[in-house]
């Protein structure tokens, strides 16, 4: 039996999760929500995380009914992400690892999403679409690496939606993407030109449908191309944008046409959380990896394919 605690806080969510051999024992999380029209800045986000991280850690232990002595390994997000929030989380992880005399393990955030998705959906060897506020990648496993088959050449899909939400002052509560999804559902027609003026009023829901449809079509196309390349019959969608039901629906149509199977998770595990870092940490720790304190620096850039996957054949 191996129990791993995971700390995540690379963007505006902060979470601590505990995993015992594939079972999520606890996974509390908070979100730093900014007013409409405002994004989250690194130093304000770090301040939010500092204010709540110890409360969340206590919640995670209490909910799991565990004492620090029961933990086998302390995992935390090494990167990629925003520097100041990453440092906040790493400081607490390093300190408790020393106080409890447990090994420390730095985890790649993207690998966390992939391993959590695999655990929850039981997808065996999927082509992975990883879509969030900071990342857009199509990934497939081959010879001890999660290889990136395609990615955005500029901004992430979630960042595109977030920025648009900011421009038209859509609420950031619970998240801009969720609110866009709800508004886009109300759009009745797909507009060719994103320009909708009615008298003195403007309508944005049509534009939102248009934006969602266009972005998601592009993602489905590159995922399908990666599947054809790898001969894969499984797709796993992970990351914060992955809980968008319209994206899941469009991907589902493509999968059905190819006779492939679609796997996705809900907002508990799609959106950044501590358990995903615990789960990737669990796999890494069981395959013999640990991170020495002096090597435990955080890094804002950390590509998915830099990590040697020592836990898969």
């Amino acid at each position: 039996m191996t129990i791993v605690i995971g700390f995540e806080g690379s963007a505006n969510k902060i979470g601590v999760g505990i995993i015992k051999d594939g079972e999520v024992l606890s996974n509390p999380r908070r979100t730093y929500i900014t007013p409409p029209g405002q994004g989250f800045m690194p130093s304000d986000t770090a301040r939010h995380h500092r204010a709540v991280i110890l409360t969340i850690l206590k919640e995670a232990l209490d909910e799991a009914g565990l004492k620090p002595q029961d933990i086998d390994c302390v995992a935390y997000t090494k990167g990629p992400g925003m520097g100041a929030p990453l440092v906040t989380v790493a400081l607490v992880a390093r300190t408790v690892a020393q106080l409890w005399d447990k090994p420390l393990l730095g985890v790649n955030h993207c690998i966390g999403h992939i391993e959590m998705g695999r655990l929850i959906t039981k997808a065996h060897n999927p082509t992975v679409l990883y879509v969030s506020g900071g990342n857009t990648q199509v990934i497939a496993y081959s010879e001890r690496r999660y290889r990136i088959f395609g990615e955005t050449i500029d901004i992430a899909v979630g960042n595109c939606l977030d920025r648009f939400a900011r421009v038209i002052k859509i609420s950031n509560d619970p998240s801009p993407g969720y609110n866009i999804e709800q508004m886009a559902k109300k759009g009745t027609q797909y507009v060719e030109l994103p320009y909708t003026v009615k008298g003195m009023d403007v309508s944005f829901s049509g534009i939102l449908s248009y934006i969602e449809e266009t972005l998601f079509s592009m993602l489905v196309e590159i995922t399908e191309r990666a599947m054809a390349h790898c001969g894969s019959q499984e797709v796993l969608i992970v990351g914060g944008v992955g809980c968008n039901l319209r994206l899941q629906e469009m991907m589902g149509v493509m999968c059905e046409e190819r006779g492939a199977k679609l796997f996705s998770t809900d907002e508990r595990f799609c959106i950044d959380n501590g358990a995903m870092i615990a789960q990737a940490g669990w796999e890494m720790f069981r395959s013999g990896q640990v991170t020495e304190l002096e090597d435990s620096w955080i890094t804002q850039r950390f590509r998915t394919d830099e990590v040697e996957v020592t836990w898969r054949a």
Partner: peptide
């Protein structure tokens, strides 16, 4: 100082 304070609070709450 922000970092130091967080480390001190962590010690206070989670020392065995």
């Amino acid at each position: 100082m922000d970092h130091l304070l967080l480390v001190l609070e962590t010690m206070e709450m989670f020392s065995l």
